[in-house]
Amino acid sequence: MTGNYTYWISTALLSLLYLASAAAYVAKRDWVRQALADLGYPGYLVPVLTVVKILAVAAILSRISVPLSDLAYAGMFYHLLLSGLAHIGVRKPGGALPAAVGLVLLVASFATQNLARDIPSPDALAMAAQQATLN
């Protein structure tokens, strides 16, 4: 039961983080372009990242396909990791805080997804733990 709550709370917070970020990309397009330029990234990434963030949340919440959901988790992992490292690389560690929080939420969501979902992911950590306790 705790795993179910952990999954849904962490997934909801992670989804809100990503959807709020996508909304900021739309509402503050010029500011976001400048922020990405300050990190050394091209401005054309703004619309791409906006769409990808929304699709990643949709893939995880809808779980139309387990492999697609796991791919969305992987994409989020790399995005959050690279985002945090980019902020640290330009000596702005405060900007890495949302990425660090996102990584914690992502790990919690991914690790507990099999406890809350009907169709298990073969890649989730919780499945390996469950099978270890059964054997």
Rank of each mutant, 00 (worst) to 15 (best):
M1I: 15
M1L: 11
T2C: 11
T2D: 08
T2G: 12
T2Y: 10
G3S: 02
G3F: 04
N4V: 15
T6F: 11
Y7R: 03
W8V: 12
W8C: 08
I9A: 07
I9V: 15
S10W: 09
T11P: 01
L13I: 14
S15N: 05
L16C: 14
L19R: 07
S21I: 08
S21V: 05
A22T: 08
A24F: 11
Y25E: 10
V26N: 07
A27K: 11
K28H: 14
R29V: 05
D30A: 14
W31S: 13
W31A: 14
R33W: 06
R33V: 04
Q34T: 09
A37H: 01
L39C: 02
L39A: 13
G40E: 01
Y41H: 10
P42G: 07
G43A: 10
Y44T: 14
Y44R: 07
L45N: 04
L45K: 06
L45R: 01
P47M: 04
V48R: 08
V48Q: 01
L49D: 07
T50Q: 11
V51K: 09
V52F: 10
I54H: 04
I54Q: 00
A56F: 04
V57N: 01
R63D: 11
I64C: 07
I64F: 12
S65K: 04
V66M: 03
V66E: 04
P67W: 04
P67K: 07
D70G: 09
L71M: 15
A72M: 07
A74D: 06
M76F: 08
Y78S: 00
L82N: 09
L85I: 15
L85V: 15
A86N: 03
H87C: 07
H87G: 08
R91K: 08
P93S: 00
P93R: 01
A96W: 02
P98A: 07
P98R: 10
A99C: 08
G102P: 12
L103N: 10
V104F: 14
V104L: 13
L106W: 13
S109C: 00
S109G: 02
F110L: 10
F110A: 06
A111P: 00
A111R: 01
Q113A: 06
N114I: 01
L115A: 09
A116I: 07
R117H: 06
D118E: 11
D118L: 11
P120Q: 02
P120G: 05
P122E: 06
D123N: 03
A124H: 05
L125S: 10
A126S: 13
M127F: 04
A128M: 13
A129L: 14
A129R: 08
A132S: 12
T133I: 12
T133P: 02
L134I: 11
L134E: 01
L134V: 13
N135F: 12
